[in-house]
Each structure stands twice: as structure tokens, then as C-alpha cells.
Design a protein around this nucleic acid. Sequence first.
DNA 1: TCAAAAGTGTTTCACTTACACCCATGA
DNA 2: TCATGGGTGTAAGTGAAACACTTTTGA
Lengths: 224, 224
Amino acid sequence: MIKVAVDAIVFGYSKNEGVSVLLIKRKYPPFKDGWAIPGGFILENESLEEAVERELLEETGIKVNYLEQLYSFGAPKRDPRQRIISIAYFALVKSSMFQQLNASTDAAEAQWFNINKLPALAFDHKKILQTAVERVRAKIRYQPIGFELLDENFPFADLEKLYATLLDREIDRRNFTKKILSLGLLEDTGELAAVKGAGRPSKIYQFNKKRYQQLLKEGMHFEI
Amino acid sequence: MIKVAVDAIVFGYSKNEGVSVLLIKRKYPPFKDGWAIPGGFILENESLEEAVERELLEETGIKVNYLEQLYSFGAPKRDPRQRIISIAYFALVKSSMFQQLNASTDAAEAQWFNINKLPALAFDHKKILQTAVERVRAKIRYQPIGFELLDENFPFADLEKLYATLLDREIDRRNFTKKILSLGLLEDTGELAAVKGAGRPSKIYQFNKKRYQQLLKEGMHFEI
DNA sequence: TCAAAAGTGTTTCACTTACACCCATGA
DNA sequence: TCATGGGTGTAAGTGAAACACTTTTGA
């Protein structure tokens, strides 16, 4: 009998630690004590998204803030025990949530790993994670999902660093600022970031989601 | 127990009939005699793609020429009998294959429908089909999948009409020609289309897939 | 010779890219 | 006052969009 599971690649971001994914340590064989993407079987009466959210809560204690279906993986031998098809999702958590979990889950059963310093993964999870990273990297360029990784109010400089990290290249600050602000999706809160160490404090902005929905309907196209 | 099926939205194209999808007439309840997307359950030892290809062959007799996973649909009540999760794919067949099948399957159990003149569909198949149409419309702009709907050798004018149909807008012939040819992916066969009726015959081109793979590696980006 | 359909270049405009100095803060 | 990090404008280049007449064919 074929079984169906959901798995979720959860991404978090902070200015200092870059982009990380949340992995869990397996308690039972196969791959006992190995790292894996959180997930589990779907219950009879829940939707796929509910299943993902439930499993994430059970296994890692987090609530995500953006969830999107990624791809379904169903090769016959991907699980050595029996045929399991996995419907994979990717999720984004806000920066403050990430740092909070980062502190509390450290050295526990669930742990954050920088996407450039990943451990060996169970099953075909390396491939799944790779697919998720590619999707996020590509998607951040034509949909405003970057804001889902930042706090409600964020320093403009953090946004720039996020893009530089994900796109893996330097960004011209003037051109980037010009482009982002010309979209008309950001609001200047008038506040300034609390600085640690030297340097001019960055302005604090917020993303106007309603305005984005509005402009979407009018045919606007987000693109960096 | 949750079961897993694959479904496939098969697209075909001809200059005169535009873009069509292949649907089958259901033999049994629920939705007996209603139209549905072809598909079926996955066998224990086949991959998802193999399942799609097998089901298409069994139900419609066709072999497709491009296959890509679309999305997985798993709402608890999408099938009234029991929980069935469907992993949907979309497929493209070449124009000559489409016209051949169009002649042979007419009035049979499998039939082509223009995407603007669809019948009522069983289950949540309307939503699945809508998702597939959106995907193809979007994808044709940034990946050379349009060629999968045309024959190996095709009149240039057909390509232009395909884009005009899918993008649902007029295309400036001069700009379109300039852009497509500047990509360096088409080869002029030196032949001319056989004309039916009046009008200058169109040049016959072919898509150079190897050259595309090559240029992809070198970082080229297809975009219309 | 007329109608239908495809081939073909140039100009304008908008957007992207390149590029450097000043300002605010903490040490 | 020095080091660090963020804010800011302009000019050149490149690619997209607008635009119409000529050529080939069948009737």
C-alpha cells in the first residue's frame, strides 16, 4: 500500500546568520540520529496545508508565516521501508521568530542549519532541500516573498543583505533602493534602527501587503 | 485509507483549432458520462511519471512528448467516495500527433476540447485544468515549451500564432521575429510551407534543442 | 490584378547599469 | 576625529516598443 506524507522545508533569516533551514534529528531507524526535513503522514480529514502546520507544530513547535507547495516526490525506492510519496512544502518564518527559535531549539531535536553548511540528510531529503532552495532563490526575484523572512518593521539595509545573500552576488545599493522604493510597496515608518557598533542607523520600513494585492489586480509585476 | 492518483492535462495545438485539452468521458459513477481529466492510481513499483504515461496510453492511446509535474491536489472532500490525493501533471503533444488523434478519437471516449470551450468537469477538475492553463501560459514566456506543441519542422507563422493564442494578445510580427531569431535557437530548413488558399508561404524552421541545452549552461535566459 | 498572408529596418523611449561622495552614529 | 555603515543622483548604454510597405502566392 502506498502512503502519503507531507514534508516542509522551513527557511529562516537573520542579518548575521544568513539563510537557514530547520531540520530534525531522527529518533528511530532508518537513518536514526540523522538529520531530516520535518514532516509526517496526513490524517484522514485534514487538508495538506493543515497536515504540514500540524506536523511542524508537533515536531518543532513553530508556526510559519508563509507556506507554499513545492513539489511531490514519489520515486519507488525513496523510503527503504515501503512506498511513501511525499508532498513537499516550503515555509518562511519571520526573522524575530527565527532568532527566538534559534535560541530555544539549539542543541535540541530540532535545529537550524545555514543553507551553505548542511549536514548529511536522510532519504532523498538532500534533493528536496535543493529543490526548495532553488525555488526560493528564483521566486524572491519575481514575488515579494523576501518580506516574509523579515519582521513587520525592518531596516532597509536588512532587505538589501537578504537579497545579496539569496542571489549570491553584490547589489548596488543605489539601484536597489531606487527600484524597491519605486514599486510603491514600502512605507517609511519614520523610525531608525537601533545600531550596535558604529555606523549610521538604517531607516525602518514596512511592507504594505494590501497595497501589493491592490496593485497586483491592476496588473503590476514585481521584479527585482 | 488515503489513496494516491496521477492525473494529466494533455495540451494539443493546431493553427486552426488553437489550444485544446484531452478529456475522457467517465464510464462509471460518480459523474457517470461526465468529462474528466485522464488519470488513475499509481502501481506499487512505478514512478509517478511512469504512472502518468501508462494511464494516458490506457485511457487515450497517446504518447506525450513533454511531461511536467503541475501540482498536488488533496482537499479532503475532492472525491465524494473516499480520500484521494491527485498528483497532477501537464503534458504537451506535437501538432501532427494532435491532429491525428483529433481525427481518430472524435466522438469516442476521449475527446479534444478547445480551452475556451470546455464542458463541465467532474470532481475538482475544473480547478486543476485552470491551474494547468495558467502554468502553460506563464511558462511559454520564459521557457521554450512552445516548440513541444509544434512539429519538428514548423512554419514560422504557426509559432507566432501559438504565442498570440496563448498570451491572448496580438503580437508585432517584426519584433517577435527579431527576438526569436536573435536567440539563435531556430534553424531555417530552407523549405517553405505548403499553402492552402492565398498568401505567401511561410518559411519552415526547426528548433535546435541541443543548442538550447548548450546555451542554457552558458547562462542564457529564454524570454519572450 | 486582386486579396491574402509573410518578410523585412529604423527610430523612439524606458529601463538598467555604472559610478562616488556625504551624513549619522559609536568608540 | 576616526571608523563604520547608510543615504543619495546622474549619465551612458541597452533592450523594448511602435510603426508600414514590399513580396509571394492562389483565385
